[in-house]
Design a protein around this nucleic acid. Structure first.
Length: 103
DNA sequence: GTTGTGACGGGTC
DNA sequence: CGACCCGCCACAA
């Protein structure tokens, strides 16, 4: 539980217009477990508080959203990112430009 | 306490 | 490149 809290804290720090990766968040949280981060965000009790849509996979793929890895929710995630200035092409983000290390 | 699972990551083939 | 396999951590049954 404490771990997930740390994850939410870190994710909340991700600046608008940028994105971070599960791995980066995991390390920043201090536990080192991308899967655990995904599991935590999947539940995301702080829906609007924690910008879970700013967390993507290390390869640039969006990953998932609202507990789903595909479907209309994914489109929403893409839109939100684009609305913040993040370029999303074919469901993939350029980590070299928008990827950031929280903390 | 053991087993199974998942919005993952990195290394091999 | 793309497909595959193994390893990682936290949580629920």
């Amino acid at each position: 539980m404490a771990f997930e809290m740390a994850v939410y804290e870190v994710v909340r720090l991700i600046p608008r217009g940028k994105v971070s990766t599960y791995g980066a968040v995991a390390r920043c949280a201090g536990k080192g477990g991308a899967r655990a981060v995904g599991s935590a965000l999947a539940r995301n009790p702080f829906a609007p508080e924690v910008p879970c849509h700013r967390v993507v996979r290390s390869n640039g793929a969006l990953g998932g959203f609202s507990g789903q890895t595909e479907g209309p929710e994914m489109d929403r995630k893409t839109r939100m990112l684009r609305a913040e200035g993040v370029e999303v092409v074919k469901g993939v983000v350029d980590m070299d430009r928008f990827g950031v290390e929280p903390g």
